[in-house]
Design a protein around this nucleic acid. Structure first.
Lengths: 171, 171
DNA sequence: TTGAATGCAAAGGATTTGCAGAGGC
DNA sequence: GCCTCTGCAAATCCTTTGCATTCAA
């Protein structure tokens, strides 16, 4: 699904990383911040795949302490906040932790969340923008963003659960 | 808005508390759990108003330590989990903390969230159920619930911001 | 050179947990 | 009386922060 949505924008992950990198450089420049090796490392890893991730998952993908390319935990957290601030990533809360996803150049979408395996499935529905706009207008509310998560059980988990139940039934 | 939605079900807060209490007693009984004074105190306070709240706000509404009716922080957290489990409350994450709202006997609704004053405004839109059902079907996903939050700036905050801006403009 | 960024260690805030005593049933 | 519940203190988990050192510009 991530791949599908990405195609719709016509950019490969590598192109995205380059474009995101340019945007981030502008962001840094405009604020007198520095283009450090750590920030570049993190940007590369973050844009190397379209998966949703949390801070720990990102850290796991980084070289371990002592290795070339290592980035400390506080720096990871600081950078994630910067990426969000720069409009590269979008952040949301799930089960008490922060989850990040690509934002820059990525079309608006929402999520199905499987409570069994914690997987996030993206979907797009144009009616959402419509509803949001209309509800906001009715309440004289200035809408800036929305977050819709449909929670349930994904197809693979439903199937595996059924199998388990059948086994129990057979005893 | 909470009052409006409540009217649609035809129950006053007092009636709600009683009904919720009955449901909770059933829940406790069926699990061999006990109907303690603390749980009763908490249920009363939780259903004394329809406001959204977090653990700290609930604790603030309780008698302080030493007073009649005091409930300790761990017990509050344990009870909140039980209320959610029993279907009395619904929980969601906002700005890194858990927020609770009445669930039992309360109609499905979604929220506008003001990022300036943190207020939550409820709204109902029948199209949401439709979209959810349809998207879930398309993805062979078994939907159980959804959560939609539209973030932006509420009317009062927009007005007060405008006023402030005007003042600055006049300097 | 010089101020921003890093890594370390430690703090912070929300929530949970182990356990001994209290209290429903 | 038995077994759950409570309150206390402490632990846990995620995230942020203070500070001395390092490094980009």
């Amino acid at each position: 699904m991530a791949a599908e949505l990405n195609k719709s924008v016509g950019l490969t992950p590598i192109e995205m990383a380059r474009t995101a990198g340019q945007r981030f450089e502008d962001y840094l420049q405009s604020r007198g911040m520095r283009n450090t090796e750590q920030r570049r490392n993190l940007l590369d890893v973050v844009f190397s795949s379209h998966e949703h991730f949390d801070a720990d998952q990102l850290i796991e993908k980084l070289p371990s302490k002592g290795s070339e390319g290592y980035v400390s935990r506080p720096t990871v957290y600081r950078a994630l906040n910067e990426f969000v601030d720069a409009g590269l990533l979008r952040k949301f809360e799930l089960e008490g932790r922060s989850v990040y996803e690509h934002d820059y150049g990525y079309p608006q979408h929402d999520h199905l969340y499987c409570s069994k395996c914690s997987s996030l499935i993206e979907f797009q529905d144009d009616r959402m923008a419509e509803i949001r706009k209309q509800v906001a207008a009715e309440h004289h509310f200035q809408d800036r963003s929305h977050r819709l998560i449909i929670t349930g059980v994904c197809e693979p988990c439903r199937k595996s659960r059924r199998r388990k139940r059948r086994r129990v039934d057979l005893i």
